[in-house]
Simulated assay, not measured.
Amino acid sequence: MSAVLKLKRVLIEAGFSQAALARACGVSPATIAQIVNHNQWPKAGLVLREAILLVCQGHGLSVGEDIFKVADECANTHQPGSNGLEPTQETEMLLRKQGLSPAARRHFGLFRDPFSEDVSDQDDVFVSNDIRYVREAMFATAKHGGFLAVVGESGAGKTTLRRDLIDRINREDQPVVVIEPYVLGMEDNDAKGKTMKAASIADAIISAVAPLENPRRSMEAKSRQLHRLLKESRKAGYSHCLIIEEAHGLPVPTIKHLKRFFELEDGFKKLLSIILIGQPELRAKLSERNPEVREVVQRCEVVELPPLDSRLEEYLAFKFKRVGADMSAMLDPAGLDAIRAKLTYSRSASAPGRGQPRDTVSLLYPLAVGNLVNGCLNLAAELGAPKVGAELVKEV
Results as ranks from 00 to 15, higher is better:
E13A: 14
S128H: 00
K259A: 10
E263I: 09
R228M: 10
E180T: 13
L230T: 03
L258M: 05
A137F: 02
Y365C: 03
P253C: 07
P306L: 04
T344R: 09
S2Q: 11
I131M: 00
A156L: 06
P357K: 13
S223C: 12
Q40Y: 10
I35M: 10
R354C: 02
F147W: 08
P29M: 09
N214V: 14
L95S: 10
A236V: 10
R358I: 08
A19R: 15
K231C: 11
D130V: 01
I205K: 00
F126Y: 12
A3C: 13
F111K: 10
G157Y: 04
Y365S: 02
P291N: 06
R49Y: 08
S120T: 15
A351F: 06
G15E: 13
N83A: 10
K8M: 12
I52Q: 01
Y315Q: 07
Y365A: 02
Q98N: 07
D203K: 09
R171V: 09
T91N: 13
L61C: 13
S62N: 13
P352G: 05
P352F: 03
A14N: 15
L148E: 07
V373L: 08
V119A: 05
K270R: 13
K158T: 06
R234F: 13
L312C: 04
A191M: 15
P42R: 08
G84A: 08
Q298C: 05
A71R: 12
Y133S: 09
G237V: 04
A156I: 02
G370K: 02
P291L: 09
E295D: 14
T91V: 14
I339T: 04
I274Q: 01
S101G: 06
S310D: 14
N170E: 15
S28W: 07
L286S: 02
S128F: 00
V177Q: 09
H257F: 04
M1S: 12
A22T: 06
A140I: 09
S154I: 15
V127K: 04
A198E: 08
E153N: 09
L148G: 01
K158H: 03
R105E: 05
N371G: 06
I32D: 00
K97Y: 13
E187N: 10
Q34K: 15
V70R: 05
D359C: 11
I243Y: 03
G384P: 11
K97E: 14
R96A: 15
G237W: 03
A385T: 12
A156N: 00
L264A: 03
E180Q: 14
E117H: 11
L377C: 10
A368L: 09
C74D: 14
N214I: 12
F262V: 04
A338I: 09
